[in-house]
């Protein structure tokens, strides 16, 4: 079945992107890079939603969902950027370890 093969292709891409994102979030100490990892995760899931809509023939629903996801994603990124800038102003660094040291 072509559909099953296509689904498997999308699924593999989804899993690989998830691995990249989670690896990036867990391994790094840099706040900005954590945000990059989170963005990769959201990209992965956006792709998956569109793929699901395409495969099942509900592309209109999937598109409207993706548009909403994108709007929410922007707000999340802006808020995260605000937190990162505030952190930088407080600690003069983007490294999370600095904050932990401050806390003692």
């Amino acid at each position: 079945m072509v559909i099953d093969q296509l689904f498997w292709l999308f699924f593999m891409t989804f899993i690989l992107l998830l691995i990249e994102g989670f690896y990036c979030v867990t391994v790094t100490y840099n706040l900005f890079r954590i945000l990059i990892g989170l963005e990769v995760l959201i990209k992965a899931v956006t792709l998956f939603v569109i793929a699901a809509g395409y495969l099942s023939g509900h592309l209109a629903l999937a598109q409207s969902i993706v548009i909403t996801i994108i709007v929410i994603e922007v707000v999340v990124v802006v808020v995260a950027a605000g937190i990162i800038l505030g952190f930088f102003r407080e600690f003069d660094s983007l490294n999370v370890k600095n904050a932990r040291r401050m806390k003692g």
Binding site: I42, V45, F48, V49, A52, S56, H58, L61, A62
Partner: peptide, 23 residues
């Protein structure tokens, strides 16, 4: 920021579920 990270992870799980429901 911790809350935000965990929240995005939750987002990914929930939206993956939503797309499977669409499928």
């Amino acid at each position: 920021f911790k809350y935000l990270i965990m929240s995005v992870v939750a987002t990914v799980l929930m939206l993956a579920a939503v797309s499977l429901f669409i499928l």
